[in-house]
């Protein structure tokens, strides 16, 4: 079964990427991602730059409305995601609990939608 793990970080946690604490921050994430890759459960995944780099687009009556920043400001921000190939939700939860952001932020686990029925 495929699950998406969406890693939500607090702004403070994500801010560590640009401080003297960066080696510890990246060390924790690369160890975690490396363990998933080595266990053969990782289908794909990406990290994301902070919400300040986001551009949001909406169309209304054929016109583009573009603004800087994320769609909504929230306490936690999406820092990245992976798609896991694991037998069940319990295994997905085990991997989610190992994420460096599981303590201060959160991990949202969503089953990947199966293809819609044909015809």
């Amino acid at each position: 079964m495929q699950f998406a793990l969406l890693y939500n970080e607090t702004p403070e946690e994500q801010g560590r990427r640009d401080t003297a604490d960066a080696p510890a921050y990246w060390g924790a994430w690369s160890a975690y991602m490396g363990a998933m890759a080595a266990a053969g459960v990782m289908h794909s995944g990406q990290g994301l730059l902070p919400p300040a780099t986001a551009t949001t687009l909406r169309t209304a009556g054929g016109k583009w409305q573009v603004h800087d920043g994320p769609f909504a400001d929230t306490k936690e921000q999406l820092g990245g995601f992976v798609i896991l190939e694991v037998p069940d939700l319990d295994t997905a939860l085990e991997w989610a609990a190992r994420a460096p952001c599981a303590g201060a932020g959160s991990v949202e686990i969503r089953p990947v939608m199966p293809p819609p029925p044909a015809g």
Partner: peptide
């Protein structure tokens, strides 16, 4: 050691 670090749930 890095593999072990990636597997723990304890910061």
């Amino acid at each position: 050691a890095a593999r072990a670090a990636g597997l723990t749930t304890d910061p």
